[in-house]
Design a protein around this nucleic acid. Sequence first.
DNA 1: TATAAATGATGACGTAACGTAAAGGTCAAC
DNA 2: GTTGACCTTTACGTTACGTCATCATTTATA
Lengths: 251, 251
Amino acid sequence: MEYTINELGKLAGVSSRTLRYYDEINLLSPKRKSHNGYRIYGQKEVDLLQQILFYREMAMPLESIKQMIESENYDETEALQSHLSKLRAKREQIDVLINNVEKTIAASKGGVQMSDQEKFQGFKQNIVDENEKKYGKEIRKNYGDEIVDASHEKIMGMSPDQYEEAERLSRQINEHLKIAVEQDDPESELAQKICALHKEWISCYWNQYSKEAHLGLTQLYVEDPRFKAYYDEVAEGSAEFLRDAMKIYCR
Amino acid sequence: MEYTINELGKLAGVSSRTLRYYDEINLLSPKRKSHNGYRIYGQKEVDLLQQILFYREMAMPLESIKQMIESENYDETEALQSHLSKLRAKREQIDVLINNVEKTIAASKGGVQMSDQEKFQGFKQNIVDENEKKYGKEIRKNYGDEIVDASHEKIMGMSPDQYEEAERLSRQINEHLKIAVEQDDPESELAQKICALHKEWISCYWNQYSKEAHLGLTQLYVEDPRFKAYYDEVAEGSAEFLRDAMKIYCR
DNA sequence: TATAAATGATGACGTAACGTAAAGGTCAAC
DNA sequence: GTTGACCTTTACGTTACGTCATCATTTATA
């Protein structure tokens, strides 16, 4: 089947402007242009648009969608599996929200009290979304979709206590790092303690821990300018220091 | 409890910029400013923010949220009930999407075929969203939340056939209207037939039909400049004509 | 067959909901 | 007494389109 821009738009529930925009940013170009310059979309484009809309539904920025689709190691079936897990996570989030609203109604009716913390249960999704926006591409490139999705699911399921614990660990690591970088000895007791803390910390986000993945992560801290910037903020050169210490720790 | 801007932001999972922006547009202002000009939020603001985030989660534009909250007949419990029904609708949409993805996986693996129509099942949400954006405020003002939400739920549940039927009716009405307005007789057979068709048409969207609501709707067509523009597009003065014909029809 | 209406194209400007950076005030802590 | 953590306002940038305006082409109708 071939479709004109409006036909495809109607089929998929998007405007023709949207399709023109997608063409403009090279996200989805028509199969060909007819002699009069009209955009003609074919079967392949229909399927691709479906994929794109899946990702868009998940609030992924178009730029990231583009990267994903363009990457050579893009596997459609894998992508669909990732969709599924994300959709399931989203449904769970909504269940949390439903629960929250029901609680709120009960609280407004009866005398049941809700803590301010509780009132924002279910909005934590935002953290995951932000994560996706900021680091999505690189992490997914390095670790694959399943791990990232699993991590996000884990965050979503975290209780306030667990979340607080992770934050506390993170602060502790950073404080120690500042001192350790000064001393500049990756073999020192402090450096190795930091590695242990860091292991604890990432275990808050990962489902299964492996030395290889952990070492790979600290390497990513050095290579990715945004992670690097974060650690340089903590202490100049702490990304490199952490990686060197981790090399020793992971032996 | 009192919170500074960052404390509240952390609690609710939004940025301080967001809170400042909400203050700027008078959506959520702090309880008071401390002597040094810092924004201080109190209990009432915490609760209101929770409400706002609920609506935002449903992709409602902030401007509409503002209108809702500001309207005198804003009833918190009622609003929460409306949240619930919307969340449930959203969960159903996600179920449709999950179904869709599973089908797509099956189609890519086995020989099962999927029609292009089917490929975009679940994205229909967009229609509802757009509706909300364009007409949300006025209709909600006139008809209350339950009716609007119920209507949206009904649209979400429509099969492609049903949807096509509604579209067909709409086109038919418009064609007849063009002729009838020319003749300019609201009592004519044609005019009354149009009313019957229009009843059929809105019954596609409404759960329970009433003459009063129907008459009210055609009155809204005359009063609201956007509906009016739509009907003037069909035929100059057709909004008024339709209302006049409906007055007779509803007797 | 002429002409109106629908559909397409390409700019170009507008918008919502913030992000982000610049420039500067305030306050606890070392 | 100055450093660093928060706060302020001002202002420009961004994403994903919506919405004209203007022009070409295609299709339906008089």
